[in-house]
């Protein structure tokens, strides 16, 4: 009987020791992985890009060209008269009623926050932050709970209340690089991610670094702006135009007090 007890105690001891060793191994591996991550991000050449926008409110003439270009580029379906009356528009780029000390409306895309509340609340990972800082959305995975819309302090997300329809032969003129979204999912600005990817691939094929000049007017809104009020670029590159503009004394952010650290920076109007 005593021998049985001893055997039992030994096997328990072995089991506990095994568990402890395994746990230590997992923790050590995890620590090494984290240390590796941080070491990589400290190297200047390998520093991940942080794409951002700068919108100069002094240059902006509020023509709405950016809004239309965005709709066209990203296959946003036009609304029927009923839906338009019921205030269900989808404008990835929109105009906010006067803010930031301006007496005119302010163009407002998704802020692509460093600490995005919409990503935290998404229950299925349909919204995520890409390594380059873009708050992206996997349409196929979205379950349509709209928690992200409630959480976004900028109200920059849109739900497809009905099946998108394109009148006449507009269907044939859709952009093949962007998938149309079905009914029941949330959609948002992607900073024209497909254009960024194409530019990065082109640079890789040409074996040249992706220059700031090549991306400055990359998104459709920036490209279409007649006064070049919208600039796009890498905020982690101190030499880029957006970084230079972000250091301007006129630079400000919407709802900076909310702590979301938006990557869309506004330049106030000159007074």
């Amino acid at each position: 009987m005593k021998r049985d007890d001893d055997n039992l105690r030994d096997s328990r001891r072995k089991l506990l020791a095994g568990l402890a060793v395994s746990a230590a191994g997992v923790l050590a591996a995890r620590g090494r992985a984290l240390a590796g991550e941080s070491a990589t991000s400290d190297e200047p050449d390998k520093r991940p890009r942080r794409w951002g926008l700068v919108i100069d409110l002094d240059r902006c003439v509020r023509c709405g060209g950016c809004v239309v270009a965005c709709q066209q580029e990203n296959n946003v379906a036009p609304l029927g008269p009923k839906q338009a009356v019921r205030t269900r528009p989808i404008h990835w780029m929109d105009f906010l009623p006067p803010a930031l000390g301006s007496s005119l409306p302010t163009p407002i895309p998704c802020m692509h926050c460093e600490d995005p509340p919409c990503v935290k609340v998404c229950p299925v990972g349909a919204t995520y932050q890409s390594p380059e800082g873009i708050t992206a959305q996997i349409w196929e995975r979205c379950i349509g709970c709209r928690h992200c819309m409630v959480a976004c302090p900028y109200a920059r997300r849109y739900f497809n209340w009905s099946e998108p329809r394109w009148p006449g032969d507009e269907l044939s003129s859709l952009n093949p690089d962007v998938a149309p979204r079905p009914r029941g999912v949330v959609e948002k600005c992607t900073l024209c991610h497909h254009r960024i990817r194409a530019a990065v691939e082109r640079a890789a094929v040409d074996e040249e670094p992706l220059s700031d000049e090549a991306v400055r007017r990359l998104p459709a809104c920036a490209q279409s702006c007649p006064t070049q009020a919208i600039s796009f670029g890498d905020l982690s590159d101190p030499e880029s135009e957006v970084s230079r503009l972000a250091r301007s004394p006129r630079a400000t952010r919407l709802l900076a007090e909310a702590g979301t650290r938006p990557k869309v920076i506004y330049l106030r109007e000159d007074t």
Binding site: G144, C145, R146
Partner: peptide
């Protein structure tokens, strides 16, 4: 309320994230 309830039934048990309130 869900826009895509069928997708919810599939994705919540598969890839539901513990950090989300849902």
């Amino acid at each position: 309320d869900l826009g895509r309830p069928a997708a919810a039934v599939i994705y919540l048990p598969l890839v539901g994230r513990a950090r989300a309130p849902f």
